[in-house]
Amino acid sequence: MAFSDDLLDAGSHIWTAQFDHPFVTELAAGELDPEAFRRWLEQDYRYLFDYARTYAVTGAKAREETAMATLLGGADAVLNEELELHRSFAAAYGVSEAELADTTKAPTCEAYTSFLVRTAYERPVPVTVAALFPCMRGYLDVADHMAALADAEPGEISHRYAPFIETYTGEEFRAETAALGDLVDEYAETHPDHRDAMREAFLTSARLELSFWEMAYTDEGWLA
């Protein structure tokens, strides 16, 4: 079994919780409160800057050509594709770019981005790659699950959240996710001494992914 599959087995209960979360099931049905989607959009926009930073720092630390290409390419894709996609989402849902930029991170977003950036600076490259993986693989699997719940191919879903499902089930996103999964497997093969730490980092990010849906759904905020 590939190590990336081993990680998914270890986190299967987290994946199940994501699939069953009301944010996911209601979005799939087109019934999600627009304010909850707006909260996700604003928080994910802020998250993506640190996600790109994590890719970039890790790519700069990597020594293997393939790893550098995958990680630095990932940073470029987030900065020049996914953030622009979020801005287009925002325009469609009546959220200005200024409102996106002015958003204060909610506690879960702050915790997740701090974990990723700290891991990138302080931990070995294989561990950070494992920490990056749940975001990519989680969104692909969740979007595939949403399409299944909608009982339609992504291009045939007609409700307001169809672009979300189409984006994260698209071939380009699948290819980027597969490349990161391959890198997880390569590092697990060449650095078996890091496997336990890679698994721990993967599971931490996966739990934070689940918490991100909850954050957006419940309007999590600071107490003071």
Rank of each mutant, 00 (worst) to 15 (best):
Pro163Cys: 03
Tyr168Trp: 14
Glu97Asp: 15
Leu8Glu: 07
Val129Arg: 13
Arg174Lys: 15
Glu99Ser: 15
Met215Asn: 08
Ala150Ser: 10
Leu210Cys: 11
Ala131Arg: 04
Ala162Ser: 13
Glu220Ser: 11
Phe115Asp: 00
Phe173Cys: 06
Arg38Leu: 05
Met215Trp: 01
Thr177Leu: 03
Thr104His: 13
Ala131Leu: 06
Ser4Pro: 05
Gln18Cys: 06
Asp196Cys: 04
Glu110Thr: 13
Glu220Gly: 11
Ala77Asn: 08
Glu35Gly: 12
Phe37Arg: 08
Arg195Ser: 07
Gly94Gln: 03
Ala201Asp: 14
Phe202Trp: 12
Thr103Pro: 03
Glu156Gln: 15
Asp20Arg: 12
Glu156Tyr: 03
Thr108Leu: 06
Gly181Lys: 14
Leu116Phe: 07
Thr25His: 07
Tyr121Glu: 10
Ala67Tyr: 07
Ala62Phe: 05
Leu7Asn: 06
Trp222Asp: 02
Asp219Phe: 11
Tyr55Arg: 01
Met136His: 11
Phe23His: 02
Asp185Val: 10
Thr167Cys: 14
Ala69Gly: 08
Glu166Lys: 14
Asp44Lys: 00
His13Asn: 09
Thr204Met: 13
His145Ser: 04
Pro126Trp: 04
Thr66Cys: 09
Glu172Ile: 03
Ala150Trp: 06
Asp182Glu: 15
His159Asn: 14
Ala201Tyr: 14
Asp44Asn: 02
Gly30Cys: 01
Leu8His: 00
Ala179Gln: 11
Ser12Pro: 04
Phe23Asp: 04
Ala178Gln: 12
Thr66Tyr: 14
Ala147Glu: 02
Trp213Asn: 02
Ala92Asp: 08
Leu116Thr: 08
Gly73Asp: 12
Leu41Gly: 02
Ala2Met: 15
Asp151Glu: 01
Ser205Glu: 02
Phe19Ala: 00
Leu149Phe: 07
Thr70Gln: 09
Gly59Trp: 11
Glu176Arg: 15
Ala67Trp: 11
Ala60Gly: 15
Pro124Val: 01
Phe164Gln: 06
Ala2Gly: 14
Asp182Thr: 12
Ala143Gln: 07
Ala92Gln: 13
Leu7Ile: 08
Ala131Trp: 08
Pro126Ala: 05
Trp222Glu: 07
Pro107Ala: 08
Phe133Ile: 09
Arg118Gln: 13
His145Phe: 04
Ala162Met: 03
Val142Leu: 05
Phe3Pro: 10
His86Pro: 04
Asp6Cys: 09
Glu189Gln: 06
Arg160Gly: 10
Met68Cys: 11
Leu140Asn: 06
Gly74Thr: 08
Glu26Thr: 13
Ala29Gln: 07
Ser205Phe: 04
Ala101Asn: 12
Arg39Phe: 04
Gly221His: 14
Ala10Thr: 03
Pro107Met: 09
Asp151His: 00
Gly30Tyr: 00
Leu180Pro: 14
Glu82Tyr: 08
Gly74Asn: 04
Asp193Thr: 11
